[in-house]
Design a protein around this nucleic acid. Sequence first.
DNA 1: CTCACTAAATGAATGACGTTCATTTAGATT
DNA 2: AATCTAAATGAACGTCATTCATTTAGTGAG
Lengths: 227, 227
Amino acid sequence: MILSERAVPVKPVRRRAGRPPHALLGHAQITKAALALVTRHGYKALTMSGLAKALNVAPSALYNHVSSKQDVLLLVEDALMGRVDVSAFADKPWEEAVRLWARSYRDVFSAHLPLIPVIALLPVTNAPQTVKMYDAVTDGFLRAGWPKERVVDAVVALESFIYGSAYDVNAPADIFAPGELADVAPHFTSAVAHRRNPSGHNDADAAFNLGLDAMVAGLEAALAAQH
Amino acid sequence: MILSERAVPVKPVRRRAGRPPHALLGHAQITKAALALVTRHGYKALTMSGLAKALNVAPSALYNHVSSKQDVLLLVEDALMGRVDVSAFADKPWEEAVRLWARSYRDVFSAHLPLIPVIALLPVTNAPQTVKMYDAVTDGFLRAGWPKERVVDAVVALESFIYGSAYDVNAPADIFAPGELADVAPHFTSAVAHRRNPSGHNDADAAFNLGLDAMVAGLEAALAAQH
DNA sequence: CTCACTAAATGAATGACGTTCATTTAGATT
DNA sequence: AATCTAAATGAACGTCATTCATTTAGTGAG
């Protein structure tokens, strides 16, 4: 669970900083290789042996730098978090910035579903890119007038929607096909058959846009309501 | 992936319906045992061997009734879907019904996180309770005036939020502790420190209520806007 | 009543996988 | 040149899901 590559020297710096003698591995190398592996062959291929092979190293060597596979996932997660676009919070109005951030966030992690439990359940401690992302978002909310007591709740609410939407992107087209149960669920069957969205987006985008617009509008109203 | 216990006899019913000669197992037994196992010992304990042991049967026997562990998870998922309370759609106004349904839905699956990928990614085909749940919800939306073209998107948007919120319920209390990175993320650190919600709920409930109220209000407004 | 049929259960085996640990290696320090 | 130390090795373990040839036990046909 510990991600810091080395503890901060407490008193006098005896031993020189930097990587040890003949090290082949480090967090950077592991992260890069894991990311490449996942990008090329998917999460099924992200095994400790496969990762070790990609690094020309024995599987057990990884455990000198990482305490578990969860740690590897956390490294990858943090790296990806740096790809979430928070730039709109710098110069765009709050509503638009939230929309752009949320879409970028969803797009990044819809391609990395297995990381969602990692983001959602593991402390951000020592995940620098993740913390940086949250800071930019928080700053945007504060400057839009959100009280600091409520910012985190608003961000968490949006994030929850984003994670769920990331799953939805990966749902098969026939996920709502009722099969032999069509007759016991007439309303649902009909609604599925008639599903249509104004703009010609795919189903996942239609639901995402509808929900995002609704939540952003609702949050804006809630903010305005409390003066 | 096939969940039907036997194919529907196509032409003349030669063989009598019902369970074969000396069968010990069936979908019902497997589902019940799996549910009990999970309830008592968590998802870590839900292994094919453990399940078989609970049923006094060899692990391989399970594969006569289920084609993979995913199938077992789908059985459990469908059973749990029957616990989601949709009764409010029968007699309460839409806004209140959605709120009660959403909370019930979140509460059921926040105790069964490993099932979320199953619900979110697997077709509902042959999952009767799941289809029934969707039908009740769809009916409620239609009677509230939602056009059948948009009902599914609205439900999917709410579901996405619900799944994400189910994760949030299980997040550790210190998930946002920035650790050594506090100084590089001053806004975020401050917002986390000052996080407070009016009603004395826990953090997950505060974010859930904020997001749910926002989305429900936003959806209501969107519905009204399109005449 | 008996035989043949069939679905279900068995038990041994397989191949991934994450992880541990005693041992060795190789560069830096004294 | 001797020593110290972090990193790498390779063998081993235990846990899984899954497979397959074989056996078991009811059922219906004759």
